[in-house]
Design a protein around this nucleic acid. Structure first.
Lengths: 281, 281
DNA sequence: GGCAATATGAAATAATAATTCCAATCCATA
DNA sequence: TATGGATTGGAATTATTATTTCATATTGCC
């Protein structure tokens, strides 16, 4: 009796694709419709779906039965479950994946974990980001002669991406690197007409904090990306963003920070373009 | 007659929260349940929801009516619409956001765009990543004496993150940087007992390609992350991953690449730990 | 504490939706 | 082209589900 009924959407999908060739015309029609409009199947009634797909309700039921379900209703469950899954709080998924990875569930689980951590962080930041802060930060940076970019260690990749993007947008910028130990000198060049993007997360790299302090004492405005209001960076900053990145296997995601960094960068680019257009006009 | 019925979930949510104080006990109970378990409202029947929330079906309907709906069914629509929205293919959202940003819709739209691009990319890669490739790449890298990390320009941030993570995991690695123009010499040190992670996307940085070629001619195995099978990197690589990153405002996301990079790094770390444990036993 | 207004529970009813059934049609094969 | 089997359409039937109703309980107010 066990006809191996597909219980999850992906299985169902591949079952349908496998059999596609051998299905009768109308059944194939509803099959195609189902894969193209899974949401409609999840929410519609047999009658409404059948109408949209251009078949009779009975065909829809036959389709379900041919797949081994005992009726439309149980087929629909699979489509609903899919929406639930997709939507199930990433937090929960992340927990589950962490447990799985702990148990040594293989490398795919690790990968899934990083994807989930990134997604969680992105969700989080789009909920919590304050538009006013974003505007403020962009205005501040757009006025700067040179934008200094300050970040070490884990945040360093973000700094390099900002520097790359600013360069592509032809915005003068300076990455504060430690290669030659000339940071102090580099920092000394900054004036109140410039601005800084500083990024640091707990445990805050002491060098970043020190440089941020020095530079803020020179009167250079700082836009900070950090992880809590207790962050030492927050106190030096003119504008600061709190970004909570989820972690997995001991490494925090960077996806939210990256998204914010890009928004700042491109935002500055646009603002400058607008400003120069006005000046010309 | 227009009672200003909440038409979208967020409006509904705030309406409920506003009135919370003034609602009768049972109605408040179902109200709280609805906000806590929106998915159940979307999918359940009046009876099943009422049971889960510990009230009568009629209460559920009264709740809906008090909010201005004419019955449970229309209230449910809002909860369903929410799932649809949330789930509406990120691609579509991205399109919409791109159009919005083009039209000069402000900096929030830009930010949302980068978030959407990152999410799309993550979705994409979790669908397309091949487990076998992942295993293969990790085994290959785990055997290496030194892991060389090769990436420029846009991919460079990923390289710095990999280097940072490998360092934290105490895995010997060498970032191939161009600072002193010593890349050629650095590359010359690599032997077949080492391995390379190379990352490059179109337009492929010529230096990356050249270095990859040289190093592969020395017999050093390469794991490549790139964006198509036509990529020149693919031909030098022992294992390669195709990562399709969505772009926004002219900049591609890095989120999928980052997730993959982290999975490789941490995967290698685990594999080594397992191997050394076995050796000891 | 008594009264009216409001809220709640439970079952009856109405509505809506899924499923079944049968006749008509299509299609492959001899 | 005739014939049997599979497929389809459409209406009838059955099932499920939302809604209404009314009796009962609770609450606030004088």
């Amino acid at each position: 009796m066990d006809e191996r009924v597909p219980r999850d959407f992906e299985t169902l999908r591949s079952t349908i694709l496998d059999r596609r060739e051998s299905l009768p015309k109308r059944i194939a029609q509803i099959a195609a419709y189902a894969l193209d409009n899974p949401d409609d199947i999840a929410f519609g009634t047999a009658a409404s779906i059948a109408a949209s797909a251009g078949v009779q309700p009975s065909t829809l039921i036959r389709f379900a039965q041919q797949l081994g379900f005992d009726g439309f209703t149980s087929l629909q469950q699979v489509f609903r479950e899919r929406l639930r899954e997709r939507n199930s709080s990433y937090d929960e998924r992340l927990q589950a994946l962490r447990a799985k990875a702990e148990g040594g569930a293989g490398h795919r689980a690790i990968f899934d974990g990083f994807v989930a951590a990134a997604s969680t962080s992105l969700n989080d930041i789009s909920r919590t980001l304050d538009d006013a802060h974003l505007e403020e930060a962009i205005s501040l940076l757009a006025k700067a002669q040179t934008i200094y970019v300050l970040a070490k260690r884990r945040s360093y990749p973000v700094a390099t991406y900002i520097a790359y993007a600013l360069g592509k947008l032809k915005i003068r910028n300076q990455l504060i690197e430690s290669a030659a130990g000339l940071n102090a000198e580099m920092v000394a060049f900054a004036t109140p007409a410039d601005a800084v993007i500083a990024i640091s997360f707990s445990p805050y790299a002491p060098a970043t904090i020190e440089e941020a302090r020095t530079i803020s004492e020179q009167g250079v405005p700082i836009v900070a990306i950090t992880d809590s209001s207790f962050s030492p960076l927050a106190q030096f900053a003119r504008v600061w963003f709190e970004v909570a990145e989820a972690d997995f296997a001991g490494f925090r995601s960077l996806s939210a920070t990256m998204a914010l960094a890009m928004a700042l960068t491109v935002g500055v680019g646009e603002k400058r373009r607008d400003a120069s257009r006005k000046r010309k006009a």
